[in-house]
Computed example of a mutant assay.
Amino acid sequence: MNGSRLMKLLGLIAGVGILDIVILSPGLLGVEIGGESALETASGVTLLVISLLVLLYGSYALLFKPPVLAPVKNMKTHEDYIAALSHYRNAKGLKKDIAHALDQLDRLEKKKTTLSDVLGQKFDQAELSYKKFHSVIDAVEQLFHLNIKGILNKLSVFDASGLSAFTSEQNPRQFSNKLVQEKTALHNEYLASITGYLGANEEILLKLDKLLLEISQLDSTDYQNIEDMPCMQEMDALIKQTKFYKQ
């Protein structure tokens, strides 16, 4: 369970507990279990039963119920991508790929934070140089997320367990060799496309590392030659290829 769900669960427990204490405290609302009035007792018992049901349902929804995922095309935040990839975390034959994609997202956030800190040390936020660096970093991040969307689109239509069921030894002669080969080729094509997206994002992360190194080595005399920096030129070329990554 992630931190957000844990906090929601703790908030639910605290909220229900406080409500019960307020209502059942003697002298506040006149509701008391075992009091003189049968109506008071019935109301108190009913409150406790309802509280228990709310806690049980809330715990189920937060602990076991899968989160509602946003459509891939509408995903924008880091949390959106994490939640969507986590949905496929246990997909047969793809666990390592999903874990790799989640690790890449985590590393991207850390590199963005480090880059922002270094840029803040080298430039004033109002400077044109600062804005140029940030615009390139933002554009590369968008390309990175396009690759994640590509992975998610493939996962949404890919059934990794289908091939093993299709070619299981239970039905070794049920299908022709040609059909099995075509099914296997399609399976491998899906895997290759996911690997391709992961590789493209690994390249982006490497370029961000290079950019960080180049920025850290900048002297004041170099500030006017940002566009000539090798890594900036590489990133600019990569950004221009964005149209080839569109879904």
Score class of each variant (00 low, 15 high):
5 R>N: 04
5 R>D: 02
8 K>Q: 11
10 L>Q: 07
13 I>C: 08
13 I>F: 13
18 I>Q: 10
19 L>G: 08
20 D>S: 15
20 D>K: 07
20 D>P: 01
21 I>R: 13
23 I>A: 07
28 L>E: 14
29 L>I: 02
30 G>I: 02
31 V>N: 00
34 G>N: 04
38 A>T: 11
38 A>C: 11
42 A>S: 10
46 T>D: 10
48 L>E: 05
50 I>F: 04
53 L>G: 10
54 V>I: 04
55 L>T: 02
60 Y>K: 02
61 A>Y: 08
64 F>V: 11
67 P>Y: 04
69 L>P: 12
72 V>Q: 05
75 M>Q: 06
78 H>L: 07
81 Y>W: 06
82 I>V: 15
85 L>M: 06
87 H>E: 10
88 Y>E: 05
88 Y>H: 07
90 N>R: 09
93 G>M: 00
94 L>G: 01
97 D>A: 06
100 H>R: 06
102 L>N: 02
104 Q>P: 05
105 L>M: 07
110 K>L: 08
112 K>N: 11
114 T>G: 12
119 L>I: 00
122 K>Q: 08
124 D>P: 05
129 S>C: 08
130 Y>H: 07
130 Y>T: 00
137 I>P: 01
137 I>M: 01
142 Q>N: 13
153 N>S: 11
154 K>F: 10
166 F>S: 00
166 F>P: 02
170 Q>L: 14
170 Q>E: 15
173 R>G: 11
181 Q>W: 04
182 E>C: 09
183 K>A: 13
186 L>Y: 13
187 H>Q: 09
193 S>I: 09
193 S>N: 11
200 A>L: 12
202 E>F: 07
203 E>T: 15
205 L>T: 07
207 K>I: 11
208 L>F: 13
213 L>P: 07
215 I>A: 00
218 L>D: 06
222 D>G: 10
224 Q>E: 14
226 I>T: 00
229 M>R: 06
230 P>T: 03
235 M>W: 02
240 K>R: 09
241 Q>E: 15
241 Q>N: 15
244 F>R: 09
246 K>Q: 15
